[in-house]
Structure formats: structure tokens, C-alpha cells
Design a protein around this nucleic acid. Structure first.
Lengths: 150, 150
DNA sequence: GAAGATTGACTTTTCAATCTTG
DNA sequence: CAAGATTGAAAAGTCAATCTTC
């Protein structure tokens, strides 16, 4: 427990807060989504990126946008394709890469899940923050994220 | 789906920022610790709680303090015990429960890891936040964590 | 030979059943 | 039968090859 009241506590406090808040909020939101019978969080994230992109996305690029490793994306997209929510097509410009795009069924599922996901985020996360805290979290943690480039 | 620039974006922005910052910072800190040859993050967290507690801790209580499930704690403590860093003893007061406490070797490892961990947090996380952002993250995300009781 | 992607073997984590004591 | 803890089976995720194309 880091010797009480020394300066390092100040560096640890925001970190611990994030660790715990993240873990609990993610759990709560996932449970919420499962209970409402919509797709899981990981699926949602992938579909959201594919939907937001203006066209098919290379696997590598998709991996960069979502918080997942390249291998994981590969597996996830396979799974999503098996469920008909995503389509994979060879890249005519570069034979090495694969392009992924969302299908109509995928968009359907995404639309069904979106309000549940949004409500979950608000209820389990954002609602507990004051407007100035939202701002600070967004810009501060945004800076942390950017610092790790990618 | 969250058409750009509507009010729901404000709810999502801090959430996305946390998701990405968390993922990248955890990865960076773990890599840092591995590179320096000290124990892993999960081990560290468990040892830290046991060290901070004023006496042996019930598995259930330990699970509550660390961000891990009860099953996970069970496995982790077994592993730590096998490495001699933690000791498990039956609870004389309640035959159902097990008590865990840190050993001298565990304290040793904890002390070796602490400066590396602290440096990692500062370098990969806290240093990117302004003082007021640290404060906002700590209290804001602290409120999120508390809201999910446990 | 390097980049993009996938696969197989492995580790980590969870879920549901189980065992034991209250 | 409820609470605490553990275990076995399964799922999720990662790492090191591998394959193909540039």
C-alpha cells in the first residue's frame, strides 16, 4: 500500500481509480447488454468501427482502431462472418491484405445494440461524472492514449 | 447509431478515452515490468493488498479489494503460494473460509517490484495528466467505482 | 526479406458444478 | 439450504510459427 502519504500516492490514486472504475463499469455494461439480448461488447466495437468507416477496412487498420490485437481481430472477424454480420473480401489492390465490411445484418444488429450500449454507458459510467470531470477524463485520458501512439 | 455531434457523443467520449487509455497503459506498464524482471501486475496487486491489510485476509475479502473474481483469486493465490510468496491457513473462527497472508519472500518481491511499478505508472500514465486532471480522474472515476459498490 | 494475415499451441480467465462448513 | 472456497470444462486472448504476396 505504498507508504501512506508520500508523494507517490498522488501518482497512484488516479491510476487505481481508473483500474477499478474500468473493471466494474465494463462488467456492468456487458451484463446489461447480455440481459437485453444484444450482441457482446467486442462484437459491438468491431461493427461500430466498420460502420463508421467510409468503406471496407483492412484487418490491420481495424485492429488499430479497436483496442484489440491483430490476432484477436482475425479471430473475431471470422466469428462475425460466420454469423453473417461481416463480410471478408480480398483486397484487389494488395493481394496480401483482407478487407472487412459490415453487412446489412450486421448493421441491423448494431442498431439494435446501440441504444442499449449507450444507455449502459450513461447509467454505469457517465452519469456519475460531473460535466467538468467528463471534460477532464476525455482530454486527460485522451492524452494518455495518444502518448502510446500505435 | 450515435449520429455525429448529438448529445450522446458527450456520453461516449469519456468512455472511449478510458477504454483506450486503459488498454494501452496497462500493456505498456506490464511490458515495462517484464523487461525489468519483476513480478507481473496481477501478482503485484494481490501482494500489495495483503501487505497493506493489517493481518491475514479472507479470500472473499481479497477478491473484493483487488479487481478480480473470486475464482481468479483462488487460482492466483495457489500460484503465489507455490512460489512461496503467500501462505494459506484455515480460518479457525470459520471452517469454511481460508485466510491468505504475505510471506517474507512475498514482501521481498513486492519491494523489488514497487519502484518499477510506480515508475511505470508515472511514465505511462500520470505524467500525461495535468494536476487538475489527476484530481478529476481520481474523484470522478472513484465515484464510478463506488457506484458499483461490491 | 518484409508486410499482411492467419493458424496452432499455449496461457489466462471465466462459468457452472462441487465440496465443506455454518 | 446458504456461504465460502475450490475444481473441471470451456471460452477468450496471446505468442510464435507459417503462408502468401509485395
Amino acid at each position: 500500500m505504498a507508504a501512506p502519504e508520500d508523494s507517490s500516492v498522488d501518482a497512484i490514486a488516479p491510476w487505481r481509480a481508473m483500474l477499478i472504475a474500468h473493471s466494474r463499469a465494463v462488467r456492468a455494461i456487458e451484463a446489461h447488454m447480455t440481459a437485453e439480448g444484444v450482441i457482446a461488447l467486442t462484437w459491438y466495437d468491431v461493427l461500430l468501427e466498420l460502420h463508421g468507416a467510409d468503406g471496407p477496412l483492412q484487418m490491420r487498420e481495424l485492429g488499430n482502431r479497436v483496442v484489440l490485437s491483430r490476432t484477436r481481430v482475425s479471430r473475431l472477424v471470422q466469428e462475425l462472418e460466420a454469423h453473417g454480420l461481416v463480410k471478408r473480401t480480398p483486397n484487389s489492390g494488395d493481394g496480401r491484405s483482407t478487407l472487412a465490411s459490415i453487412t446489412a445484418a450486421g448493421t441491423e444488429e448494431l442498431k439494435k445494440a446501440a441504444p442499449v450500449y449507450l444507455a449502459g454507458i450513461e447509467q454505469h459510467f457517465t452519469d456519475h461524472l460531473t460535466p467538468s470531470q467528463r471534460e477532464a477524463v476525455t482530454t486527460g485520458l485522451g492524452r494518455v492514449a495518444d502518448a502510446h501512439g500505435r
